[in-house]
Simulated scan of single mutants.
Amino acid sequence: MENTLMLQRLQDELAEELQRMTQLRDVFQAQHFADEVDAASHMEAAHLAQCSARRSAQRIRDLQSLLYLLRHNGPRQCVDCGDDIPLERLVAAPGTTRCLYCQQQMESMPSPLASPDGASAPWFDVSAIPQAQFC
Rank of each mutant, 00 (worst) to 15 (best):
H32A: 12
R61P: 03
V27N: 04
S56E: 08
E36N: 09
H32T: 15
R9V: 07
Q11M: 09
D80I: 03
Q50Y: 13
Q11P: 02
Q58P: 05
Q50A: 15
Q29I: 14
L18K: 07
R54E: 15
E44I: 11
E16K: 07
D12Q: 10
H32F: 15
D62T: 02
L48Y: 13
E44H: 13
D80H: 10
A40R: 07
M21T: 09
L14C: 03
H47N: 14
D12E: 11
E13S: 04
Q29C: 10
F33T: 05
Q58R: 04
Q50W: 13
I60P: 05
R54C: 07
D38N: 05
L7D: 00
H32D: 14
Q64A: 06
Q11L: 07
T22G: 07
D38S: 10
H42F: 02
T4R: 11
V37A: 09
T4W: 09
Q19F: 12
L67K: 03
L67N: 01
D26Q: 11
R9M: 10
A39G: 11
D35F: 06
N73P: 05
Q23Y: 08
E16I: 06
A57Y: 09
L69E: 10
T22N: 09
A39S: 13
A15T: 01
L66C: 03
S41H: 14
A45Q: 13
H42P: 04
G74C: 04
T4G: 14
D12W: 03
C78F: 08
G74H: 04
A46K: 02
R25W: 11
R76G: 06
Q29N: 10
D12G: 05
R76Y: 02
L5Y: 13
Q8V: 08
R55G: 11
H42C: 03
Q64W: 00
Q58A: 01
L10Q: 04
E13W: 05
A57E: 14
S65T: 15
R20T: 07
Q11V: 01
R61V: 05
F33N: 06
C78Q: 07
S65G: 15
D80T: 14
C78D: 09
S56V: 09
H72N: 12
L14V: 01
A39I: 11
L63W: 00
H42R: 02
A15L: 07
S41T: 15
L69A: 10
L69N: 09
S65M: 10
Q58W: 04
Q23G: 09
H42W: 02
C51P: 00
A57C: 10
D12S: 08
R76T: 04
L69V: 07
R54I: 11
S56Q: 02
D26A: 12
R71L: 06
L7P: 07
N73A: 13
Q77W: 00
M21L: 14
S41Q: 13
N73L: 14
L5C: 11
H32Q: 15
R59H: 01
L63F: 01
R76C: 05
P75D: 02
Q64E: 15
I60N: 03
I60T: 11
F28V: 08
N73I: 09
D38V: 06
P75Q: 01
V27C: 04
